[in-house]
Design a binder for these strands. Structure first.
Lengths: 335, 335
DNA sequence: CACAGTCACTATAGCGGTAACTTTACAAAA
DNA sequence: TTTTGTAAAGTTACCGCTATAGTGACTGTG
């Protein structure tokens, strides 16, 4: 095995404690011995055993990141942001994929807690804070920050975008482009899905537009279901002339369905997504979208979490809202 | 703090060791006491402290995954595969992003080793095994598996696709489709880039086709550089009529450049990528590609690594080659 | 000169577990 | 009766590190 502090101590004829302190540049070690220790450590290629250290300091310098889907480039981008912030601080990121499943998510969070991570960032698949998960989270003192999705009733730290704003921005844009029969491929029944739906409804109401119930389809969250959802919308007697999609993958799927049906985008139907996934402008029809600054979400969440960890005591709940930005591309440009 | 084994022991009036054994269902504990211990553990919501355990067992049940870019959905898919395999085995995945930088990668691997991960999976940005990294890896006994890229001279465990096969498959296909002036947007100077280039050259040679030197552009590895690379190719006097791109993002960028230049795909220029990134068929022109079964790569690598970890001693190097599969979509279909 | 204060270092006691030996009690074999 | 065996514990010694409370030598002070 590799060298331990004990070895350095014996080699130098000093006590183990002297070595420990010297290595951490503790104040009551003379410059002289500190240098001797450091040198010997280098010679032996000493690497501190952080497991042993963690056992006594109760810090692991690991943070958990629980996201619904790594494949969704929105979350991959968030993950990257988190890594960029935490890496330099000496933290490792442990990633879990909940597959958009609330129970799996709860289990994974428990595992992370059992692993004594110093903090957790979650893009939660929970729809509300009732249920065991949040009880567990609150009982343990491990700080955590939610991102992107805010379960109803949640009162803790949060970083994300106002979903209602996204819904309004997107829907208003479609209206401005001349759409009058605007449908919505809505996401899952969690905060983001509901918030964007609310924004969609408010925008319509503001412009005194109506949308029949069947104009809101449960599109879930990825391109496959966007495609299916759109196909159903296309079968309606009164075909929509604009669609606001829960996110970009759904939007991409929707475009595929529309083109397959022999219709044009944006001519027959204008489409807008959300998330500004990086390949959006490489799509068949470059997809208009609402940008959520995903890397910024990751970085802000990381920064907030880092503060909570440093503070070593619960901080008053902080909410960081990142502004949403409309990005117009071909899929919705009619004028 | 939460309950420790000591607490259970005191509550039940047995020794700490009895509790330790009982919890692990060790054989020399009576069914009776085992049940008592288990019950009390449940009542106290006892969670084993895996840090303490790791300190003595020398197992952390963590594995490191070092990839060049989480945003590239090929690697995200690999990561997912790794997670799917290791999750049920009780391992946590620690992900590092090397940003396609060999030095950063080396540093990150060192950090992972210092963290005492039980094993490491790397999609390496190293071009050859000279250099410090592999010395370090070999010195420590931590098992590791390389995926996707094989640095020259590497002799250890590997899971991936034959890059030359990819290059040949793609280039042959373009030739079959009637292309005669075939260019290549090549990837970085690492195994994958060189292997695919070799395959491209061999396929051309087999069909007695020639390609001027400037037909091979260094396209790097993402859509931005694919776009730039293609623009340069378009300025050549003898414009190519087919392009084999290092990977799908590069292919997507290339298509963008071609369309922007007012040319058609595949009519004027046929395009094929590699990797079968999940959004490939949502692109402006659905992109032909070579499928590498990325999730399978992740899973196989995970399985191999798990074996190495279990074995507790170096295993003879194993190489798993996943077959490549041609997927023809619109971007190259001329007949 | 006694006393307190500082400096540089050391001894001890854990952190929460596990491995490897004992030990004890009781039954079966010699 | 003594030996042996075995099931079911218990003891002890760490794993590698840190926190805390000393210790001894030396300095300055009234």
């Amino acid at each position: 095995m590799s060298a331990r502090m004990k070895d350095i101590a014996q080699d130098l004829g000093v006590s183990l404690m002297t070595v420990s302190k010297a290595l951490r540049s503790h104040s009551d070690i003379s410059e002289e011995t500190r240098r001797r220790v450091m040198n010997r450590a280098r010679e032996l290629n000493y690497r501190p055993n952080w497991i042993a250290r963690s056992l006594v300091t109760r810090r692991t310098y690991m943070v958990g990141l629980v996201i619904p889907d790594l494949m969704h480039s929105f979350f991959a981008e968030v993950a990257k942001g988190v890594g960029r912030k935490f890496g330099p601080l000496g933290y490792q990121i442990v990633i879990s994929n909940s597959e958009e499943n609330a129970e799996a998510e709860a289990r994974q969070i428990e595992v992370l807690l059992d692993r004594n991570v110093d903090g957790i960032i979650v893009a939660s698949a929970q729809s509300h804070i009732r249920g065991e998960l949040f009880r567990i989270l609150e009982k343990r003192e491990t700080p955590y920050v939610l991102i992107d999705r805010m379960p109803s009733g949640f009162e803790g730290h949060y970083v994300g975008v106002h979903d209602e704003e996204i819904g309004m921005l997107a829907t208003n844009h479609l209206i401005e482009q001349g759409c009058r029969r605007i449908a919505h491929l809505r996401g899952p029944v969690i905060s983001t899905g509901s918030g964007r739906l609310r924004g969609y409804r408010r925008a319509l109401a503001k412009h005194k537009l109506e949308a029949p119930l069947e104009y809101v389809a449960s599109g879930l969250y990825e391109d496959g279901s966007g495609y299916e959802g759109m196909r159903k919308l296309l079968q309606l007697r009164k075909r929509p002339d604009g669609v606001f999609c829960y996110n970009d993958p759904v939007g991409a799927g929707a475009i595929k369905a529309i083109l397959e049906a022999g219709l044009s985008v944006p001519g027959d139907i204008a489409v807008i997504g959300a998330g500004n996934v990086h390949y959006s402008d490489l799509l068949r029809i470059p997809l208009s979208t609402i940008d959520q600054s995903s890397p910024v979400i990751g970085e802000s969440a990381a920064e907030l979490l880092a503060q909570c960890i440093e503070a070593k005591k619960p901080l008053p709940p902080k909410r960081v809202f990142i502004p949403a930005r409309l990005i117009v591309r071909e899929s919705s440009r009619r004028k």
